[in-house]
């Protein structure tokens, strides 16, 4: 008897069923394949031509620039080198391939370390974003004392403006100094922030029991909005798009009671109520703001 026949039907044995239940219990949370596909296409910047065609497209502007330079050299004497601050443009050089964001703890102090992936609009794209606690206006530093500032954030990526050109593959760092960065760093070891509903555009947390009861929430379970993100970078080359939370005018300090008519007590409730496939035009959120109940709709 071979191993196959010995194991046939194992999924229906008590041991097998127990394992199946364990696998189902720890199955990955639902994911929206359509949104995933949109994110991939955004990362690709639309479908890029591949192989020789891409090489030619990359070489074409280089060849054109070289020709222009040659013509200019024939006409003008080259001017002396002037110090300046040209706009940051990512160079397609031999820099390392794009890598993943890191939250490191050096000497016990968390630090966000990201990599420049290329150009983005009028700035540079780095592989750290809102999930790492980066927000618009955050300051970053690179080797040689170069300073940069976040000008737009996506969930996984951000656009920065640097005071001197940075190459693709260059590292930029932020000492987790802001509240959002510290929150992200604090959850980095635990699989991410459970209250960060970034796709929706809000960070929430469970309210302390006593606070909820003081607001008249009888079972003492409610969620408070800690932060809303006004807009997210969905496409590296476009302007950031307003989040649903911002469109609803959800604000920090609001207490969430219901989403789409469903009572929301926990972070899991909130995630499920938001759902992945809801029609955003029908989204409604009942909140308490300054003691008053409000219904927010798009």
């Amino acid at each position: 008897m071979n191993d196959d026949t010995q194991t046939e039907g194992y999924d229906h044995t008590p041991e097998g069923r127990e394992l199946v239940a364990l696998l189902q219990k720890y199955a990955p949370p639902a994911v929206d394949s359509r949104k995933g596909a949109q994110a991939v296409m955004a990362r690709l910047g639309g479908v890029r031509p591949r192989g020789r065609l891409r090489l030619l497209i990359h070489l074409a502007p280089v060849a054109a620039a070289a020709a222009l330079v040659a013509v200019a050299l024939l006409i003008f004497t080259p001017p002396p080198e002037q110090p300046g601050t040209p706009a940051p443009v990512a160079k397609q050089d031999d820099a390392p391939a794009p890598t993943h964001t890191d939250i490191r703890r050096e000497r016990g102090y968390p630090e966000i370390v990201a990599t420049v992936r290329g150009s983005s609009g009028d700035g540079l794209l780095i592989d750290a974003g809102a999930k790492d606690g980066l927000r618009v206006g955050d300051e970053l530093s690179a080797a040689g004392g170069v300073k940069a500032r976040v000008t737009a954030v996506g969930i996984f990526e951000a656009r920065i403006s640097a005071d001197v050109p940075l190459s693709r593959g260059a590292e930029v760092r932020a000492r987790a100094a802001t509240e959002a960065q510290q929150r992200a760093a604090g959850f980095a070891d635990f699989g991410g922030d459970p209250g960060a509903f970034l796709e929706f555009g809000a960070l929430v947390s469970a309210m302390p029991l006593a606070d909820a009861r003081m607001l008249g929430i009888s079972d003492g379970a409610a969620l408070r909005v800690d932060e809303t993100l006004p807009a997210l970078l969905r496409d590296p080359q476009s302007a950031p798009a307003p989040t649903l939370a911002a469109q609803l005018d959800l604000r920090a300090g609001d207490v969430i009671i219901e989403v789409n008519g469903s009572h929301v007590r926990t972070l899991n409730d909130f995630g499920q109520a938001l759902g992945w496939s809801h029609d955003p035009r029908l989204l409604s959120v009942r909140i308490l703001r300054n003691g008053k109940q409000l219904d927010l709709r798009l």
């Binding site: 635990f190 699989g191 991410g192 922030d193 469970a206």
Partner: peptide
Amino acid sequence: KHIRKHKRIRPVGDAPDLNLDEQ
């Protein structure tokens, strides 16, 4: 590769599944 690069921050749990908010 991601794990090798991030050895120090390998996650051990997925917070949304763990009901951290239920005290």
